[in-house]
């Protein structure tokens, strides 16, 4: 009887001890990520300007209607810029990374070197990548000086709105393809080698083998690479700061740029928070949609292995 009670106390103490062990992580995570999301939601319904002496004034959905009606035209253009970066960028990064992975699939000293070369931009800060390419492709940058020196006309990489956006996407692709390359290489290792061999023996060409064996088996990898690339492309900010600072005009102002360098920098905290809440919702919904849509392809991959 006494022993049973002692055992129960011990179990309860164990449960309490277990609960306590989660407290430090929960405190930091809740304090600096969950509570801020709450603040963001609350401020998004106010006209707060960030000045401590001012109390946030409740304005209902005004910030949200302002984003959708968009009287100044800033928000819609930054949404379009971000959408274009996410779609074109994710597509380009994934196609190039997969192509490179197939090219660098076998491990030799040469391919190991090439993999590291493809990956190195990722260890540089996006801000530094931006400044670096600004010095290479700017109006007085290295490329344009070379063109001028050889008697040709310069190219408006960063000075024409359309060119600037295309240049920025290319720079982002250059910086990010290494990460996805590593993921594809890991995914390719999981492709059953005996299946590929059997298909080749049966007379299937390289394209057929890729189409019917490699690509289906890569399905789980493709889900991860699409979700991670879309998530990171939705929040592009630092590379903008270094490369174009949003210009020319607002041609390369992304959603994150709009939040941090336009709304927040101009003390429109309420509006910045509404834009932030919307971005978080879009990122979450997009991720789960992609994961759900990819589930069928992944089931195919499981059937293969």
């Amino acid at each position: 009887m006494a022993r049973a009670r002692a055992a129960r106390v011990l179990v309860r103490r164990g449960a309490l001890g277990r609960g306590l062990m989660t407290v430090p992580a929960a405190l930091i995570y809740i304090g600096l990520m969950v509570v801020p999301v709450g603040y963001a939601v609350y401020y998004s319904f106010t006209s707060y300007n960030g000045i401590p002496s001012q109390t946030p004034e409740w304005v209902g959905l005004e910030n949200y209607t302002r984003i959708f009606a968009d009287p100044t035209g800033d928000m819609h253009s930054s949404l379009a810029v971000t959408g274009l970066i996410a779609v074109v960028g994710a597509f380009a990064v994934n196609v190039i990374a997969l192509g490179l992975a197939l090219l660098l699939r076998r491990t030799t000293p040469f391919t190991a070197f090439a993999r590291a070369v493809m990956f190195y931009p990722h260890v540089l800060s996006a801000l530094i990548v931006g400044f670096l390419w600004q010095a290479v492709l700017g109006p007085q940058g290295a490329v344009n000086n070379l063109l001028e020196g050889s008697g040709r006309s310069t190219l408006p990489f960063l000075s024409d709105p359309d060119w600037a956006l295309a240049t920025m996407i290319a720079v982002i692709v250059w910086a990010q393809l290494g990460v996805q390359l590593v993921l594809y290489l890991a995914g390719l290792q999981a492709v059953p080698a005996d299946l590929q061999e059997a298909a080749t023996l049966d007379g299937a060409g390289r394209v057929k083998v890729f189409q019917h064996v490699t690509w289906p088996a890569l399905a789980p990898t493709v889900t991860v690479t699409i979700v991670t690339s879309v998530l990171s492309l939705l929040k592009v900010y630092e590379v903008v700061l270094g490369l174009t600072n949003g210009g020319p005009g607002d041609a390369t102002q992304t959603w994150a740029y709009e939040i941090l360098a336009v709304s927040f920098a101009n003390n429109k905290v309420g509006l910045a928070c509404a834009q932030a809440v919307l971005l978080i919702v879009v990122a979450g919904v997009l991720s789960f949609t992609i994961i759900a849509l990819r589930r069928r392809a992944e089931e195919g991959a499981e059937a293969l292995s």
Binding site: M33, Y43, I259, A283
Partner: peptide
């Protein structure tokens, strides 16, 4: 906890500043 992986750090920074 895992839900936090979908929240971009630089986006949540604006309201986190008020907590800090």
């Amino acid at each position: 906890f895992v839900a936090g992986m979908f929240i971009p750090a630089q986006i949540i920074l604006v309201p986190a500043i008020f907590v800090l």
